[in-house]
């Protein structure tokens, strides 16, 4: 493909990234660096602030005033609260699956692929994309949740009872290293498309058209990184290495979720997430 075509593809995917994902890397960066003109997130750093803040976890774009005058919900025992927060975060994850699906459908050629293959590409790619999407929402001290309305500290997440305390720490470790790459929104969009269009997922029927699509996106990504980050010639290679880390991270995450399902009697996994995680690894 001509470089003009590759640039057009980058622009198209970047537009789709902005259209489908409510908290982009640039928005998250603004919130984390305090450049949102007084509209700073609610900080959850202990059980008390969790009780107060959990109300917002599943609320899309709650107005600031409403947030400030909110009435605290009745307190729940610590164990119950952890499960209830986990349930709310699951709903957000299910929404994110929808967002990633819409983004995937906007990749030129994706919807023309075999329907069975589209399902497999999403099943295997969606948690990898969501994990990567989480990285810009994190810094070494904590993570944004609920469309940037909440900042939950890393120390607090580590202090939760087992196995909940083990869920986020590997994501922080990945995020801190990933954020060093300093990708921008358009780089992220192309990287997500590369992840989704992986031709080596188990069970794919027609691999060739998937690999062809991925090859074009890879060319667009390589061109873009060379243009936007000329001072970092190794960036493309470094980014591709992250795909291996992501597979391990997702495999560990799925194992932990299966363990949770066994250990927590009250835990109910969202049907969409159940579908995705069943027989995944």
């Amino acid at each position: 493909p001509e470089s003009a075509d590759l640039r057009a593809l980058s622009r198209q995917l970047c537009l789709s990234y902005h259209r489908h994902f409510p908290l982009t890397k640039s928005k998250a960066k603004a919130i984390l660096s305090g450049k949102t003109h007084g509209n700073s997130p609610f900080v959850i750093h202990d059980m008390k602030s969790l009780t107060a803040g959990q109300y917002f976890i599943n609320c899309r774009q709650l107005p600031v005033l409403e947030r400030q005058r909110s009435v605290l919900p009745p307190e729940e025992p610590a164990g119950e609260l952890e499960l209830s927060v986990f349930r709310r975060l699951q709903f957000r994850s299910a929404e994110a699956v929808q967002e990633v699906t819409e983004f995937a459908k906007s990749i030129p050629g994706f919807t023309e692929l075999d329907m069975n293959d589209q399902v497999i590409l999403l099943k295997y790619g969606v948690i990898e994309v969501m994990t990567t999407m989480l990285a810009p929402l994190m810094n070494k001290d904590g993570t944004l949740f609920a469309y940037g309305q909440i900042f939950m500290t890393r120390e607090f997440l580590k202090s939760l009872r087992k196995p909940f305390c083990e869920m986020m720490e590997p994501k922080f470790e990945f995020a801190v290293k990933f954020n060093v790459l300093e990708l921008d929104d358009s780089d992220m969009a192309l990287f997500f498309a590369v992840i989704i269009l992986s031709g080596d997922r188990p069970g794919l029927v027609n691999v060739k058209p998937i690999e062809d699509l991925q090859e074009t996106v890879l060319l667009a990504l390589e061109l873009q990184l060379k243009t936007i980050h000329p001072d970092c010639p190794q960036l493309f290679a470094k980014l591709l290495q992250k795909m291996t880390d992501l597979r391990q991270l997702v495999a560990d995450h799925v194992r932990l979720i299966h363990l949770l399902k066994k250990q927590e009697v009250q835990m109910c996994l969202h049907p969409l997430l159940q579908e995705i995680m069943r027989d995944l690894y």
Binding site: F91, Q98, M115, N116, V119, L272, E275
Partner: peptide, 21 residues
């Protein structure tokens, strides 16, 4: 595969109306 991934399948086919999750 379609039977095991009904919601995912629906999300892929249905682009306009919101899917009841």
């Amino acid at each position: 595969l379609k039977e095991k991934h009904k919601i995912l399948h629906r999300l892929l086919q249905n682009s306009t109306s919101p899917v009841d999750l």
